[in-house]
Design a protein around this nucleic acid. Structure first.
Lengths: 203, 203
DNA sequence: GTCTATAGGTAGATAGAC
DNA sequence: GTCTATCTACCTATAGAC
């Protein structure tokens, strides 16, 4: 206890493996990535991975669970700071896009594509987390439905808005000409135009 | 030549295999589906498949190419019949959703998830077709940008709208309470409200 | 904790009979 | 065109030395 104080907690091997798995699974798919690929990425022999995880699937589950849990935290932090209806809508867009495009990018992409390969037990756990994340967004949107800020057909609007947001994982490039914040603001202006800022409405 | 006249062209074995592959690849993924699975689905032995296709990947490519080509045709037919700006926008929504949720459902789902597993040569061909399909939508939207029907930031609007539409493949259930036509009309009303039909705007 | 070596299983693809 | 039989390669996972 007295010996040494950790300044920045170094990621342990397990976390390093999960992070590398996230990148590889996103790039080549879970089934397209072999444990040898993963071992090479973290400079181990393939057998050594099985000291840290019992199975390959356990690595996938760890990636998805960690990622989804952190995403909920990111979103909730944004929502907690939002007061007006428009701020809340903005928080949903910024928080969600930040989670899926930046911080937990790999986990979101992989869970979307590869959740079907999970065993029933793992699938249940992961899908429950995914549903929980989405329920935070849905209930926040539900609150807005009476303010007049969003259309009255909440279900269809929710499907439309979340679809547009979720699809960004397919095309958004972090090194492109659009920051995540700009994208969120741009989308916000499409669904709830700020009438004070009329530049974009003038012809 | 004189012997018999085909009334309805029976799908030949090759087409039967492609169709079964579409269902299996969508359900279990391309890599998660073995040639033995596919052979069983069409009541053949696994070796017999290789009389019709040289490799497993060739089956995937055939599925995607056929599907994307037909999708372009579906969309263009809809667009050709549309006159007013709002009809054109409606044609985009109806045509696109019909293509990806009904007629070429399997191909769209699979190309989205599994295109990365294709060899570079096959990938190039398939992506070119995908781009061509999308360009038909994009240019139709571009035409609408001067009519005032859609927002002036066409790029962001296009990304937003196509994202919402494309994402429907993730959640739309053909046997649910929403027909594809109803979905298209509902989305149309969100992006370009019909002011004559004010029921939905009244509070 | 990581290594080497390999077991045990299954994948895509081929050969040749019919 | 389809079958049976099988090849080769590679996969996940394990065993035991260090």
């Amino acid at each position: 206890m007295a010996r040494s104080r950790k300044r920045t907690r170094l990621p342990n091997r397990r976390e390093i493996i999960i992070k590398a798995a996230g990148r590889l699974f996103r790039e080549k798919g879970y089934e397209g990535t072999t444990v040898r690929d993963l071992a090479e990425a973290v400079k181990l022999q393939s057998g050594s991975l099985f000291f840290h995880f019992d199975t390959k699937e356990e690595i996938l589950v760890a990636l998805l669970e960690d990622g989804l849990r952190r995403a909920v935290a990111i979103l909730d932090r944004r929502l907690a700071n939002a007061m007006t209806p428009r701020e809340k809508l903005s928080a949903i867009l910024h928080g969600h896009l930040e989670a899926i495009l930046d911080e937990e990018r790999d986990a979101f992409y992989v869970v979307l594509r590869d959740w079907r390969t999970l065993s029933p037990a793992s699938r249940k756990k992961v899908i429950a987390l995914r549903d929980e994340y989405e329920s935070h967004i849905s209930s926040a949107l539900e609150e807005l439905s009476d303010t007049g800020l969003i259309p009255r057909n909440t279900r269809l609007f929710r499907l439309f808005l979340l679809g547009a947001l979720n699809w960004t994982v397919q095309w958004y490039k972090p090194d492109g000409d659009l920051t995540i914040g700009q994208l969120a603001d741009g989308f916000l202006d499409l669904v709830a135009p700020d009438r004070l800022n009329t530049d974009q409405n003038r012809k």
